[in-house]
Amino acid sequence: MADETAGSKARNEVALAEIWNGISRWEFWLTLAWTDIRGRYRRTLLGPFWSVLNSILFISILATVYSLLWRIDLGTFLPFVAAGYFVWIFFASCIGECCSIFHAYGETLKTMPLPPMAMLVRVIVRNLMVFSHNLLVFVVIALCLGMPLAYVPLALPGLAFVALTALGLGTALAFLCARFRDFEQIVQSLLQILFYISPILWLEKLLPEHATWLAQLNPIYHLLRNVRDPMLGSIPPYSSYFAAAVVTAASLAIGLWAYLRFRDRLAFWL
């Protein structure tokens, strides 16, 4: 028994060193993330503008329809939807892509001396690149509508919470999906549901009094607010920062646990 504990302690130390190694290989994940983005729109005429075009189309049509539905002025609703949607897409793409990254690079992970951690960071970083691109689109929308942009830099701490939550949760899900492929499908449908039950296409103040918990208990709502509120020109409440910090810490803890527990078996699942 004592031997076994010593063995698992040594294994944990190796895994921790590897996590750190993966995080510190910034040249790898930065270059590969950028290569991924370049590769995605390779040989298309519009290149990355496809992503801009897609989101502009989605945002403008949905914002128009829903502003009629909720009887809200489009000028205030459009930036609300745009900001929320961009943050959501960032989070959902990180999670969804983490679920498939180990399979996608199965052969590589079995034959190259690369810490799987570096792959997960690469997923988060490439989506951060897409988000910063989308942020520019948002700034253009905001400028056209004459909105104040002074608070936008305050979105950064909120974004850090979203990114770290996605990294922690994504790590745990990446291992789970590598072992049980069904979870990739499950995660996709859960993400879809989460999109509709989170206040992205609707304002939380539209909720009746007895149903405000629907937003308050949704971790996505708090993560979202800390980025969206500053983008729209207000400061999120402390309670949202607190909730986001708790969610982030819990996600990172789950991710770390999964990494230490399943790292050694990963290659056998691919």
């Binding site: 790898f28 290569t35 590769g39 690369l114």
Partner: peptide, 18 residues
């Protein structure tokens, strides 16, 4: 990455190798 050039891949492969 098959769609990138030999020169690009010298860089990518080298980064994978650490």
């Amino acid at each position: 990455d098959g769609d990138f050039t030999g020169y690009d891949n010298i860089m990518l492969y080298g980064l994978y190798l650490g």
